[in-house]
Amino acid sequence: MLRVENLSAWYGEARVLRDVALRVDAGEVVTLVGRNGAGKTTVLRCLMGLHAGQRGTVELDGRDIGRLPTHRRARLGLGWVPDDRGSYASLSVAEQLTLPPVLRPRSSAERTGLAWSLERVFEAFPVLYQRRSVPASTLSGGEQQMLALARVLRMGARLLLCDEPTEGLSPLLVTQVGDILRQAKRHGVTVLLVEQNLRFATEVADRHYLLAQGAVAEALDNSAVRSRERELLAYLGI
């Protein structure tokens, strides 16, 4: 579904990504793990077309999207869940949920599309229903994270780009985020997840890429991550 080749990115003169290559197949959940500053967030921003200094190939379903403007990429089915949770202080919860346009199914084979109805969103996230008319700035961190996930699910994004959705959340909320991602996967949504929490990563994901100093150092499967957990944790500095 997603194929990235030779992706390099710069902040001014400093090169932050070096020939990143990765692949995410339809229906998979894949994580990017790595230390702070390894370039995980930059990879997601490059995929969304939000990083100015980038070079390389980004293909979605075989189509080169590397030169498309950000809003066109979103309309092709990329759903961004930013690391700051992307809340608007001046929009109510309901307004934010309905801000992204609902994406239509791409082919007649895909009759209904992936978009969640508002009823379904409120069923899965009762807290958002309770707080639908308040500004998002009054939500707790966990509630803002739920809002960020619900927003792209309602939009009907096919590939979620989630930037550390569990950061700063209580264990209970981490479990909830995991349930939501698994539920999305069951319905055919593909996920690229930036994650520091290795245990969480192995619980929800199929495969992992270890990013180090702006390059993919290793591709790992779940069993490799579990058996090398100590070594990886020490490497990640957690």
């Binding site: 950000t70 979103a74 001046s90 929009l91 801000l99 346009p101």
Partner: peptide, 18 residues
């Protein structure tokens, strides 16, 4: 809603397909 969203966070709003 679109104007308020774009006023507050233009980049994020583009990332939602607007």
């Amino acid at each position: 809603v679109v104007v308020r969203a774009a006023t507050e966070r233009p980049e994020l709003t583009r990332a939602f397909g607007i």
